[in-house]
Design a protein around this nucleic acid. Sequence first.
DNA 1: TAGATTTTGTCACAGACATTGACATAGCCA
DNA 2: TGGCTATGTCAATGTCTGTGACAAAATCTA
Lengths: 245, 245
Amino acid sequence: MTMDTTPTPPQARGRRGGLRRGFLTAGRIVEESLRLLDAGGVTGFSMPKLGRALGADPTAVYRHFASKDDLILAIADRLIAEAMEDLKPDACWVETLIDATRRLRRTYRAHPAAASLSSYRTTQRPAEIRAVDVLLDAVLQAGFEGFQAAVVYRSLGDFALAWCGGEAALLALPEPLETADRAAWTRTYRAVERAEYPHIWQVRDELPLVTDDDIFESILAMVIAGLCQRAPRPCICSRHPGSVR
Amino acid sequence: MTMDTTPTPPQARGRRGGLRRGFLTAGRIVEESLRLLDAGGVTGFSMPKLGRALGADPTAVYRHFASKDDLILAIADRLIAEAMEDLKPDACWVETLIDATRRLRRTYRAHPAAASLSSYRTTQRPAEIRAVDVLLDAVLQAGFEGFQAAVVYRSLGDFALAWCGGEAALLALPEPLETADRAAWTRTYRAVERAEYPHIWQVRDELPLVTDDDIFESILAMVIAGLCQRAPRPCICSRHPGSVR
DNA sequence: TAGATTTTGTCACAGACATTGACATAGCCA
DNA sequence: TGGCTATGTCAATGTCTGTGACAAAATCTA
């Protein structure tokens, strides 16, 4: 664990303004952005800091990305690539969808600051397009067709991105704030007046026990159950009860 | 439609540094924040701009809110209040949950920039606590108890906030970006190679037709179906088929 | 009513950020 | 060789969040 507050990385210039061609690349910049975001959160990430961390000028990154937003889209695609890296479509389309969603969540939790910046964006870049194709495959296997298939895919995709992005945004909050937000359930909601908020009062002891994992698996199970109920074709394995039609 | 680029609102000082007590209030500040966010998006909203719009000093707001984050929490609660304003619990608990989710979405769509800043935060303020109690009521009516009820409530609440927040974040993107993001489905994904992305290709004509409304109603229906399937007690009306147990 | 205290607004300013335009040099192509 | 372009540097602009010193108004206390 090297505390790299003021690192002295290899310099882009040899001496007196000379420069090394190919010292910065899009790939290296994205990797370093991720490192910075992981280490210092959203506030630890800025174009000047990024340039300095790369051993270059604070404005050097602009030679490779038109704007910070442009860079964020590249980071978003990098995250999707990491999440779907060794995703192998299962024989059962339901398992494929569940697995993909869990993978996305795992990656977003590993890089919460990066995810919070980029989760709701459409990158239109290779990794995203690949992922869309894999998930659409599963949706088509479920027997959805044409417009229906398109709607179902968008529903599942946007759901996963939104939920995992929201979790990441909370994890990425500057430290005092995240703690305060989470403490809500053990302080404010725990200490509520019985007369005023009777229903909260009823479960006041259980509310603080709920974990992110509980919530995720619970909402995912509901979505999948609703999906199976509507799917024209059931899955191949016996674990996911489908519609009664 | 008054173009208020440089408005000249009532001034806080009468003359020569004198000042009017009670000129700024938390309520007025939140209202003006909302106006600013609605009119100019996230980029049109800053502490200095807010102060000037209120006819006061660029730093005046700090006398009422400790930080921008503090103000954002107040805005978040204001949005929840607006969303749940005249929510009347239906006799059918399923209808109550659906109605609350649709209301949240309507409010977030009306104030996308404000929502994008605040949707994933826990405000711990009055409107939020009230809303939690109403929704927990519905969950308890469904027959969930104790820890289960807590998990189900958190699942539904976080789902609604995350999805609607994500939609709002997209709507709140600075104009050229939102258009670009949306154009993905009519450009990039429409023009995909059949051999490389066969499943996208299959629904390439339908993908651009999918609207936000379609996606929202579709994912909401799945969640509700999954919920009804797991609810120990069915709803009172006949419109929401429950579990087969 | 007079004096002390608190509240609320103003002002000057520190430190950071995104982005731009002018400049310089290194590698490439003719 | 001579020029072009890609890439890095530098100086600078206008903006942002937040602080601390100050001043006047409202309120509280004697």
